[in-house]
């Protein structure tokens, strides 16, 4: 049975997605690998960053020379911003590129852990929602912040599994489940997934999707890892919907105990 058979589409705001995996486009060794990995992941939505054009042309050209915005919904991010003011500036620049009003809002509060500044995130989200942005907000696994982000009108709330780029997997599955239980908008776990089992475990918590970048981009073979992530997200989703057996610290035989030979 395919995931589509018992699972519906992922609905965020006014759009539907077949894939529950969102991928980043940073940190790839070259654009050709990035495009192949993005395609292999099966995603329909990719994050991009807004940066100054290098007028000396010593770096790669813009990503739109490589990715077709008709093929993927572009989700501009505010990565690298440390204040609400900066994030709002980057958000407006991203929207002015002219593709959509979708946004991944990310405001960092600490350089070492890259943990988000949740106060600034709520403040910026309120302004950006008023300006018509469809805000998907990166946040901690704190329930109260997640509720506030929903209150101010975010179309999705994106708690971290663990710090950005850490690959530590879901450090607090209980908090992730609690956020999912309490919010009405989609919950997408963003950041911290390291390998396919992490993606699977994340989806088994019942969340609506996963966003990852480094786990694919920094794999030895990003394209095959992207395939593994696609399968893991589907497997985790199906396992969640299927209802797992209760875990118990006692063995129970799978074969009949009666009918053994004398």
């Amino acid at each position: 049975m395919s995931a589509e058979t018992i699972d519906g589409p992922l609905r965020i705001a006014d759009r539907e997605f077949t894939s529950r995996l969102i991928v980043g486009t940073g940190k790839y060794e070259d654009n050709e690998t990035m495009v192949k990995a993005v395609r292999a992941s099966g995603t329909e939505m990719v994050t991009v960053a807004v940066r100054r054009i290098d007028l000396d042309r010593t770096r790669e050209e813009g990503i739109l020379y490589h990715l077709d915005p008709e093929e993927f919904l572009l989700l501009p991010n505010t990565a690298g911003c440390y204040t609400a003011e900066d994030a709002i500036r980057y958000a407006r620049l991203g929207r002015a590129a002219g593709f959509s009003e979708w946004l991944k809002l990310e405001i960092i509060g600490d350089e070492t852990t890259l943990l988000p500044d949740t106060h600034a995130t709520i403040e910026a989200a309120r302004t950006l929602v008023d300006e018509g942005f469809k805000v998907m907000a990166y946040t901690t696994d704190d329930l109260i912040t997640a509720l506030r982000l929903e209150d101010v009108g975010c179309v999705a709330v994106m708690p971290l599994a663990s710090p950005i780029g850490s690959g530590l997997g879901v450090v607090n599955p209980y908090y992730i489940r609690e956020i999912k239980r309490r919010l009405s908008v989609p919950v997408i776990v963003d950041a911290g997934v390291g390998t396919a089992s992490d993606a699977c475990v994340t989806m088994e918590q019942g969340v609506d999707g996963v966003l990852m970048n480094t786990a694919i981009a920094a794999a030895e073979d990003p394209v095959s890892m992207a395939t593994a992530m696609r399968q893991a997200v589907e497997a985790g989703r199906l396992a969640f919907l299927s209802g797992r057996m209760p875990a118990r610290e006692i063995a129970v035989p799978s074969s009949p105990v009666r009918g053994m030979l004398e």
Binding site: T25, K27, V48, R52, L64
Partner: peptide, 10 residues
């Protein structure tokens, strides 16, 4: 003046 564009990001 700031001239910006999209680059790869997470």
């Amino acid at each position: 003046l700031e001239l910006v564009h999209f680059v790869g990001g997470g």
